Computed example of a mutant assay.
Amino acid sequence: MQPRLSICIATLNRGAFIGETLDTIVCQLHDDVEVVIVDGASKDNTAEIVGRYAESDPRVRYIRLPVNSGVDQDYDKAVDHAHGEYCWLMTDDDLLRPGAIDRVLAALDGRVELVVINTEVRTVDFGAALRNALVAKHVDTEYAPEDADRLLVDTAHALSFIGCVVMLRSFWQSRDRASYYGSLFIHVGVIFQGRTPRTRLIAEPLISIRYGNAMWTPRGFEIWMFKWPSLVWSFDSVSAQAKSRICAREPWRQLRKLWLYRSVGGYARAEYQRYLVERPMTLFKRALSYGIAGAPAVLANAVSSLYCGLFARHARMNIYDLSRSPHATFVARTVARLVGY
């Protein structure tokens, strides 16, 4: 009998974390729910860890690839291997809350094509909350295909995290996926490339995100300054006004963002040479962009941390990033303690 739901996980070198993730999933499984894990040729003990779950529970299937194809293509392969009517694109290091699978199953009525699950964001050790919810909704909400703008504005920040996506498998397979290989956000491309799916948002956070543990964290400048805005602004299905509420078309032009990335160690002369040196900008803006790239990172970290401590304590994720930077100062660590981690 076809499973109702396939929980699809693409993983790579996550032996230290994936067992904890699977512990929160396997204990909630039903006979009509399967777990499909595609391993992009891990070089650590991922195969050993996942293999134990697959051997003890027939609902867990493990597919190891001979070579790594990238996270987008590996998720696409996981959906190809899935048998479920719906596919939940779950991550390999985050945790499901108790009752999450039952709550999702109740939302799958055959009519809805996409379910977006609200999530909370916690520190890497899950010790403290950074954001209680990524979607500012207190009740479940539905979106028709003509609500593309509202869907993007309400859910884009959550959708930047793939684990919140549950999609009708036939809808996924009817869309262009290959064009989004390498984007790191294949699911967002599938959703917004044309008519947006009939969507249900589950307002209750059902996933705890391990913030700062993503394998792409060292590429943060490239991802959030270029890849993410390029993707968002490529969609014809949503208006420019809606897209501008998610991100600027060229956020790298914003000096405060360059300063913040310098503060956390994500922007230096190497990033300037790789990403900005050929970009058109005024001589004044170029001088400032180059100057920020060469500013003492410890000084930038201290100034940004002091600003957050005095005026922006609500920016808990930024404060956490500043406190975990290799250039973190006494100021950064003090502000982090003041806000509770």
Rank of each mutant, 00 (worst) to 15 (best):
A10Y: 03
A10N: 03
T11K: 03
L12Q: 10
R14V: 08
G15W: 08
A16L: 08
F17Y: 14
G19R: 01
G19S: 04
G19M: 03
E20S: 13
T21L: 12
T21K: 13
T24Y: 11
V26L: 06
V26D: 06
C27G: 08
Q28F: 14
L29V: 10
H30W: 12
E34P: 12
V35K: 06
V35M: 07
V36M: 05
V36G: 08
V38P: 01
V38G: 02
D39I: 09
D39K: 09
D39E: 12
D39P: 13
D39Y: 11
K43G: 15
N45F: 10
T46E: 12
A47W: 07
V50T: 11
G51I: 03
Y53Q: 06
A54P: 15
E55T: 10
P58K: 09
P58T: 08
V60W: 11
V60T: 13
Y62D: 08
N68C: 13
N68S: 15
S69W: 04
S69P: 14
G70L: 01
V71Y: 02
D72S: 05
Q73Y: 01
D74M: 14
K77R: 12
K77G: 04
D80I: 03
H81L: 10
A82S: 15
H83T: 09
H83Y: 11
H83R: 12
E85K: 11
E85F: 09
Y86V: 05
Y86H: 03
Y86Q: 06
C87W: 08
C87A: 11
C87S: 11
W88Q: 10
W88N: 07
M90T: 14
M90Y: 15
T91N: 15
T91E: 15
D93P: 15
D94R: 09
L95T: 10
R97Y: 14
I101F: 11
I101H: 07
D102C: 10
D102M: 07
R103Y: 03
R103P: 04
V104T: 11
L105P: 08
A107N: 02
A107F: 01
D109N: 02
D109K: 01
D109T: 00
R111K: 02
V112I: 05
V112W: 03
V112P: 00
E113R: 00
L114Q: 02
V115D: 01
V115M: 01
V115Q: 01
V116L: 07
I117M: 05
N118V: 01
E120W: 05
E120N: 08
V121F: 06
V121W: 06
V124H: 01
V124C: 03
D125P: 00
F126S: 00
F126R: 00
G127A: 03
A128E: 05
A128F: 03
A128H: 04
A129E: 14
A129H: 06
R131P: 05
R131A: 15
R131G: 06
R131W: 06
